[in-house]
Amino acid sequence: MTAEAAENGWPLEDRGAAFGDGLFETVLVRDGAPLLWEQHLARLARGCRMLGISLPAREHLERPLVDAGEGLSVLKLILTRGSGGRGYALPDTSEPRLRWRLAPFMPSPERWRRGVRVRHCRLRLGIQPALAGLKHLNRLENVLARAEWSDDDTAEGLLSDSEGRLVEATCMNLFWQRDGILETPRLDRCGVAGTLRTVLLDRLPIREVDAFPQLLEQVEALWLGNSLQGVWPVAWLDDAQGRAVQRWSIGPQHRRLQAVAHDALGFPSRLDD
């Protein structure tokens, strides 16, 4: 196992850089303590099993936390298969390569309180059940989707798969309330199973469903969430051309899911409406 800070660079032949042959985790760290750490480790372990990469020892994964000071920071861990192999063929033996970076972090309290504007994306995610739920390094779909807008008023883009089912946002999971029931897209075909999503599924009665974008025009509340930003209520939804299709007044109905998520992350759970 090779483990070092990301500033030391990557060999050109690294399979993560060449093929996206690896995994990553982004972890919120508060006063040196990684939040939702067990969920992050569990997802990384699932990815390692699926890709056939050796899972680093826990002490290697936790080594960067020694340098985390007070306040909020974000730890990014990148694990690749390492180098070797001819073309796409796996090496006979491999030495996984672990890199990390710690950086200061500041969430967006205004988005917690007032909500955000989002839009549907034109890009469709490819369906690949073997990789569904994993936070693997192949993220070109997300890069292309994020390039569909440049205005500062739009906070996120919603992605559907190639058969038209809702999946996620470009870097957040998606939740809504319909007829008083909390729901989230099923992620058995593609998409990233976020660690905050895992916590919310454990703590709240949220149904995993197959749904199409038109459903969002009838929901009572819509949210985006991840383990760094917490939960953003959605106040305005646009189509892929930037035309408004639905608006919501942010109120008490948005705070229940948000409060549970923020309690897990140490963010304020009571917000002024």
Rank of each mutant, 00 (worst) to 15 (best):
residue 141 E to G: 11
residue 74 V to S: 15
residue 162 S to C: 10
residue 49 R to A: 13
residue 110 E to Y: 15
residue 269 S to V: 09
residue 201 L to M: 09
residue 107 P to L: 05
residue 62 E to Q: 11
residue 230 G to T: 06
residue 269 S to F: 14
residue 252 P to C: 15
residue 185 P to W: 04
residue 14 D to G: 10
residue 244 A to E: 13
residue 267 F to S: 13
residue 99 R to H: 08
residue 267 F to Q: 08
residue 3 A to F: 00
residue 38 E to N: 12
residue 144 L to S: 08
residue 117 R to P: 08
residue 103 A to T: 14
residue 185 P to E: 00
residue 18 A to C: 12
residue 254 H to T: 11
residue 102 L to C: 04
residue 165 R to Y: 09
residue 201 L to N: 07
residue 46 R to E: 14
residue 152 D to T: 13
residue 22 G to H: 01
residue 45 A to V: 14
residue 254 H to P: 06
residue 180 G to P: 02
residue 63 R to Y: 15
residue 156 E to K: 04
residue 251 G to L: 06
residue 190 C to I: 04
residue 14 D to S: 08
residue 37 W to G: 08
residue 103 A to S: 04
residue 47 G to I: 03
residue 8 N to D: 08
residue 244 A to W: 13
residue 182 L to W: 12
residue 258 Q to M: 04
residue 97 R to V: 04
residue 137 L to M: 05
residue 164 G to W: 02
residue 181 I to P: 12
residue 210 D to F: 10
residue 18 A to I: 06
residue 240 A to C: 14
residue 18 A to L: 07
residue 147 A to F: 15
residue 131 L to T: 01
residue 122 R to H: 15
residue 195 T to M: 03
residue 44 L to C: 14
residue 53 I to C: 03
residue 205 P to I: 11
residue 237 L to S: 08
residue 151 D to W: 05
residue 1 M to Q: 02
residue 12 L to H: 09
residue 81 R to E: 03
residue 269 S to E: 11
residue 222 L to T: 04
residue 16 G to W: 00
residue 193 A to E: 12
residue 235 A to Y: 08
residue 13 E to P: 09
residue 253 Q to E: 15
residue 260 V to L: 06
residue 142 N to L: 06
residue 11 P to K: 02
residue 261 A to F: 03
residue 93 T to M: 06
residue 82 G to C: 03
residue 201 L to P: 11
residue 2 T to K: 13
residue 134 L to S: 00
residue 269 S to T: 14
residue 73 S to V: 10
residue 192 V to P: 05
residue 177 Q to K: 14
residue 32 G to H: 06
residue 188 D to F: 00
residue 14 D to W: 01
residue 142 N to A: 07
residue 23 L to A: 07
residue 228 L to N: 01
residue 187 L to R: 15
residue 104 P to W: 03
residue 30 R to M: 13
residue 250 I to R: 07
residue 38 E to A: 12
residue 228 L to M: 12
residue 33 A to P: 08
residue 94 S to I: 13
residue 224 L to E: 06
residue 197 R to M: 02
residue 50 M to K: 12
residue 118 V to Y: 01
residue 216 L to K: 00
residue 123 L to E: 10
residue 180 G to L: 03
residue 52 G to R: 04
residue 174 L to Y: 08
residue 220 E to A: 12
residue 249 S to C: 13
residue 255 R to L: 02
residue 207 R to V: 10
residue 129 P to Y: 05
residue 52 G to W: 10
residue 165 R to L: 12
residue 16 G to T: 00
